[in-house]
Design a protein around this nucleic acid. Structure first.
Lengths: 231, 231, 231, 231
DNA sequence: TATGAATGAGCCTTCATTCAT
DNA sequence: AATGAATGAAGGCTCATTCAT
């Protein structure tokens, strides 16, 4: 479910080999630029992503960027989408790899969300900042992806509820809370990095989530997830 | 515990009526400008708070703003502090007014946090974005206020734990999560406003929090807080 | 030959006692403001004379300044005129007080120019900077005063030439050079203050001037003025 | 001894023709902008050199200026340095070209100073006004250049003294006076331009300087320099 | 395709000047 | 007469965007 890139490569299925080559190059450039954007953000923060800084980091000229993106907004949109794509890849992956148990899969999914955010700490916060600036179209796109992206979590919650493991919670809200807790690492990173390692953060948040979700009678069984509750 | 304003009116204790009148006007203007800032944010997003936009919204000239604030940073700081001050006033108030029961007080406190955020939806998000840009001094100020502001929540958590009502959770983390969930209303307002009324949002989040916190044996007693779990 | 103030008190001879009182107050305020301007300049440099700084230094409100001066330019003009007035008072005074000998009087006059400049170091340089900004009228006024102000020097030069003491130099040019050398103390004050005391500066410049002026056969007689030639 | 430019073209020794072309263009633009700055000063005075005025005069946009200069200070510094560079080129040149006689070389040097100032009338006065505003580094740079720039004059003075031609004067002070007299043409241009042609100004000032410097017994020999004494 | 010089609107800030009180 | 709050036109600077090469 990857590759939701942002319009730079929307030219569909064209057998012309020349066009194919162009598409390949386009895709390459796009990735190169998005990677550069991510690097700049991670290094200097979200505010310092000027077109010049981006060009420098990518090793291309400013002008070239406009061949692959319609403008700055489009790039930021693409960066946001990139993170959402990462969710779309990594979370299902983590679920598939994990223990088949619903709780374990839920924990794995949440961990994957957290991991992606930790890897794109600044990019992950971009959507909070840019929503207003983005064109209506881009905003809707993001919102759709966000919903789609959190679908696995909702699925697992429903599954857990149906299996009689979880309380009958508001699945939408809990899924959102889980994402919020994952974003929490990025939002207050300056605070947590001094008090908690990333692994501990994830473990404790997982504990709290499951504490809220699990019916009491299953707690013993999942004690391994719950034991990180205390500081 | 209010009055952490931002320097525009620090001239203290002066019986001179002239000075008193000036102070009053100063305070009035400051409030007017902060209110205008909040309105601009609410209308156009936190990015569009240019001095010109602020002046237009407040119905004054650009130059005048600089009589009341040292610069843009100071205004943003003041807006942030304003919200934190609201927490400092409203949360203790809600706690004092509530049922003496620790759980009820916790719920009241959380509700007050949410209410303040709902009233300052955009301003409440400002600190996430501006911390980096603020001068060291301002940043420390905010951080201190944030800590002070969330202290009541931590106190109640500790109290609940000591009373044998709550699990022995990481108090700092849970308090942060609660704030995050309160901010959640502002962060994803576009989503929730279509599915949930504010009161429902608060009720359900309260339920979830208490579901995680309460020892199973106390759940029945506090069923009134927990019954909003389901959609 | 004093009092060439700048228009704030041009109301002429009016017997009305009320008007007389007003004139007195006007004159007082003008002096107060000019003195404040001089103080600000001497303390913070010529660039920092904002109307606010001036008002603060004078202990009045900004608005009041406009009752006595038409605007900033007029104040600066008045400050310049003030220095020129000081020349008009102090130089004739020094000449009158000095030894009747033409050379001694020339030396005394030059010393007086230097002294006035040392006392109004910043104000003295103002005219170099403001000429372009001043209204045509003000500029002409200054130029006339400058010429008038240097008249004593020219008189003494002519006298010395006629007395067979000085070479038959271009009186205008030498007078100008002498003024330039006096201003030199202000222009490169940052340099000289580390290498020369004011008195030495004056003594040496006097020596150089007389070295150029005096016919060789009179040098022995005026050796006391010439002995400061060497470093 | 030229080339003390101000950083816009410090990239040295690169055989890459592309870079070479860029350097050429950079140098061109820099010169164009400095020339425009000089023209604006000449037309409207040194105060009116706003970035907008400069851009208009140079026929470029404001933004472009910042590609070649770090800011306004840097431009003013460059203008000042430009004049000092002109001294550094023209004065040694004049000395080398002149009659080997020390007095003739001194006269030639002084004439060259005057000529440079006449050509950069307003720019030459800039340093008096801007020294304070410049960053420490720039100020030191100017001071060093000023010292270096006036060194030839001091050398010639020392040489004349050692050769028994000049009185044993304070070399530093006389060199400063000479520069002051050269600047005099710019400082009081409004006055002299009506009474004296530039050549006469120089000739007479040279006469005066030598009148002060030359031992009486050498005067006859250098009569050709002294005969311009009278008006 | 790729460059980067060039543009210009917009931002924050200062300050001389005015005017209601 | 006196105040100082209020104005608004500059000023310096940045940066997304365009376009000739």
């Amino acid at each position: 479910m990857p590759s939701s890139q942002t319009g730079a490569d929307e030219i569909d299925a064209d057998a012309d080999p020349d066009t194919a080559a162009r598409q390949a190059r386009t895709r390459l450039r796009s990735r190169q630029l998005l990677a550069a954007a991510a690097r700049v953000m991670e290094r200097d923060g979200t505010e310092s992503v000027s077109m010049q800084a981006l060009a420098d980091e990518a090793g291309v000229s400013v002008g070239l960027i406009y061949r692959y993106f319609g403008g700055k907004d489009e790039i930021l949109l693409a960066v946001i989408v990139d993170v959402l794509d990462a969710f779309a890849v990594r979370v299902p992956d983590a679920i598939a790899t994990a223990d088949p148990d619903p709780v374990a899969r839920f924990a794995a999914a949440f961990g994957a969300y957290c991991a992606v955010i930790a890897e794109h700490r600044h990019a992950a916060l971009l959507s909070y900042r840019e929503s207003k600036n983005l064109a209506e179209q881009g905003r809707r796109r993001i919102q759709q992806l966000e919903v789609a992206t959190s679908e696995p979590l909702r699925d697992l919650l429903r599954e857990g509820i149906e299996a009689g493991l979880f309380h009958q919670v508001d699945v939408d809200l809990v899924a959102y809370d889980a994402l919020l807790m994952a974003h929490g690492w990025a939002l207050k990173h300056w605070y947590f990095e001094r008090t908690l390692r990333f692994e501990d953060y994830v473990a404790r948040q997982t504990s709290l989530l499951l504490l809220a979700l699990l019916l009491p009678r299953h707690r013993r069984k999942y004690a391994r997830f719950l034991e990180h509750t205390q500081p």
